[in-house]
Amino acid sequence: MNAPPQVDRPNMTDAEWQARCDLAALYRITDMYGWTDTIDTHMSVRIPGEPSCFLINNYGDLFHEITASSLVKMDIDGNVYSKDGKFNAAGFTIHSGVYKARPDANCVMHTHTRAGAGVSVLKKGLRPITQDALSVYDDLVYHEYGMPTSQEECDALGVTCQHGNSVVLRNHGLLTVGATIPGALRRMYMLERACEVEVIARGLDEEPAPIDPEVIRQYGERAKQQRANPGYGLTYWNAALRQIEGKGDDWRQ
């Protein structure tokens, strides 16, 4: 990839700047995949070496406008360290709740796509009827809808995310958690794909072909091993970086 432009970043570690570049890239990738909801929804990353602090989008920016320097630095108690930074209140509730409950989590993604929101309103939710679904099915949990900006919801979401990293937020959308940005992105990609096919399948006048329960179990074991690899999602991440770099607009500034 081309060398990023030089940016003046006083009082910022190299690790924070790299996290900013990676998160800005994640927003651009999210935009490329068509997962945006204008200025709503949000992704975050925990700052290396500062476990109580994370980066999130400046509320009001479109995802294709986000750059490394435009991201807002805040902590899990709601303190903002970026000058003139604005954040989505519901976004703070979601991301702080996960980071408080999951010390191992370093990236959180949240979407409102039509497919994800569509599955979120279904009582039975996502079924193990596709290969995409089997990639996340053993790690899938459901979170009941609560008041988005309340402390109660913050705490409840933290509890839910202690039981899985691919989350259907009932009557709302989707959420994924990862130890890395590539890992969280890969989970979201597979979860979104599974929801897309689920919605299509429910609109057809035929029951889906079942997958043998033993195959579901075996696939789940393999998927679990893949997700446990520290490099999970990295190949796909690098491919997506090449795609957004090809657009010619640099997010690393």
Score class of each variant (00 low, 15 high):
P4A: 08
Q6P: 02
Q6I: 15
V7F: 04
V7I: 12
D8N: 12
R9Y: 09
N11F: 11
T13E: 05
A15W: 02
W17L: 07
W17T: 01
W17A: 01
D22P: 02
D22T: 04
Y27K: 01
Y27G: 05
I29Y: 03
I29G: 05
Y33S: 02
W35H: 11
W35D: 12
T36L: 04
T36N: 11
D37R: 07
D37M: 08
I39S: 08
I39C: 08
D40E: 07
S44A: 06
V45S: 13
G49Q: 12
E50M: 11
E50S: 11
S52D: 14
S52R: 09
S52A: 11
N57Q: 09
N58M: 05
Y59M: 14
H64S: 10
T67N: 04
L71P: 02
V72Q: 03
I76N: 00
G78Y: 06
V80Y: 01
S82I: 02
G85N: 05
K86R: 14
F87C: 03
F87Y: 14
N88G: 01
G91R: 03
G91I: 07
V98M: 09
V98D: 11
R102I: 03
R102E: 04
D104L: 05
N106I: 00
C107A: 15
V108T: 10
H110G: 13
T111Y: 01
H112M: 04
H112N: 09
T113F: 10
R114Q: 12
A117H: 09
G118R: 04
V121W: 02
V121F: 10
L122Y: 07
L122W: 11
L122D: 08
G125F: 12
G125N: 06
L126D: 07
L126C: 09
R127N: 07
S135I: 00
Y137H: 11
D138K: 09
D139L: 04
L140N: 02
L140S: 05
Y142M: 09
E144M: 08
E144G: 06
Y145L: 09
G146F: 00
M147W: 03
C154I: 06
A156S: 14
L157N: 01
G158V: 08
G158Y: 05
C161F: 08
C161V: 12
N165D: 14
S166I: 02
V167G: 01
L169N: 04
R170K: 15
L174M: 13
T180Y: 04
I181Q: 02
P182M: 02
G183H: 03
R186D: 09
M188C: 08
M190P: 00
E192M: 01
R193V: 07
R193H: 12
V197T: 14
E198C: 13
E198I: 10
I200S: 08
L204A: 10
L204F: 05
D205Q: 14
E206K: 13
A209F: 14
I211F: 03
R217C: 01
R217Q: 09
Q218A: 15
G220I: 13
A223Y: 07
Q225M: 12
R227V: 03
N229C: 11
N229D: 15
P230S: 14
G231P: 01
Y232P: 06
G233D: 08
L234Y: 05
T235P: 00
R242F: 10
E245Y: 10
D250P: 02
W251V: 13
R252L: 09
